[in-house]
Amino acid sequence: MDEQKRVEVAEPRFEHGHFLLIAGFRDRFTKETVQDIPALWEKLIPHIGNIPGQKGEVTYGVCSNFDGNGGFDYMAGVEIRKLDDFPQEKYPWIEILPRQYAVFEHKGSLELLPQTLEYIYKTWLPASEYKGLNAPELERYSADFNPKLKTGKLEICVPVEKKT
């Protein structure tokens, strides 16, 4: 039996996210194809800094349109200012509405990200006073994020509301 690697995840901070437009590249994934997400990032990297209306240097992974069977859309992208005259045929985009997020910092290798997500959704969330929302989940990568050097910051922003 494979021994599962353990991850340490600190308690989240809570923040009220603001309206975002994220543009980049998107595809549909399942549990069986999730290992292909890095290829989407490889496709995005040469475009960072060249996407019209790009705002800042932070990059985002956006998980949305969950089907309840492990399928979801994933976008690797950057924040843009507006959609006016935006080349939507070249860069798909998604609108992120303002809402409350539980924000977790992922530490360590990206290979351990699935364990961090499993902890958040299977351990922390059920035991917390919050419930997850059917809304986009964000991975926020700092401008200096470098997965090879393990520098920079990766935050997982989980949309939540208090249980009633």
Rank of each mutant, 00 (worst) to 15 (best):
Met1Asn: 02
Asp2Cys: 07
Glu3Cys: 11
Arg6Val: 00
Val7Ile: 11
Glu11Met: 13
Arg13Trp: 12
Phe14Asp: 12
Glu15Gln: 02
Glu15Arg: 00
His18Gly: 10
Phe19Arg: 04
Phe19Tyr: 03
Phe19Gly: 00
Leu21Ser: 13
Leu21Asp: 08
Ile22Pro: 09
Phe25Ser: 05
Arg26Tyr: 03
Arg26Gly: 03
Asp27Val: 02
Val34Lys: 01
Asp36Leu: 08
Asp36Asn: 12
Ile37His: 08
Ala39Lys: 10
Leu40Lys: 12
Trp41Ala: 07
Glu42Cys: 07
Lys43Arg: 11
Leu44Cys: 13
Leu44Lys: 13
Gly49Arg: 10
Gly49Trp: 06
Gly53Lys: 13
Gln54Ala: 12
Gln54Cys: 07
Lys55Met: 15
Glu57Asn: 13
Val58Cys: 13
Thr59Met: 01
Tyr60Ser: 01
Tyr60Gly: 01
Val62Asn: 03
Cys63Tyr: 07
Asp67Met: 09
Gly68Thr: 05
Gly68Leu: 11
Asn69Met: 02
Gly71Val: 03
Phe72Ser: 01
Phe72Lys: 02
Gly77Trp: 05
Gly77Cys: 15
Glu79Ser: 13
Ile80Phe: 03
Gln88Cys: 08
Pro92Phe: 04
Trp93Glu: 08
Ile94Glu: 03
Glu95Gln: 14
Pro98Val: 14
Pro98Arg: 00
Arg99Cys: 11
Ala102Gln: 05
Ala102Val: 11
Phe104Met: 03
Glu105Ile: 14
Glu105Ala: 12
Lys107Met: 14
Gly108Cys: 12
Gly108Lys: 07
Ser109Met: 06
Leu110Tyr: 03
Gln115Phe: 05
Gln115Asp: 04
Leu117Thr: 02
Glu118Lys: 04
Glu118His: 10
Tyr121Lys: 06
Lys122Gly: 12
Trp124Pro: 04
Trp124Val: 06
Leu125Asp: 04
Pro126Gln: 07
Ala127Ile: 01
Ser128Ile: 02
Glu129Lys: 13
Tyr130Leu: 05
Lys131Gly: 08
Leu133Ser: 07
Glu139Asp: 11
Arg140Val: 15
Tyr141Asn: 10
Ser142Arg: 15
Ser142Gln: 06
Asp144Arg: 08
Phe145Ser: 10
Phe145Tyr: 15
Asn146Ser: 10
Lys148Ala: 05
Lys148Ser: 02
Lys148Gln: 05
Lys150Tyr: 00
Gly152Tyr: 00
Gly152His: 08
Cys157His: 15
Cys157Glu: 14
Val158Asp: 00
Pro159Ser: 04
Val160Phe: 05
Val160Tyr: 02
Lys162Met: 04
Lys162Gly: 03
Thr164Pro: 14
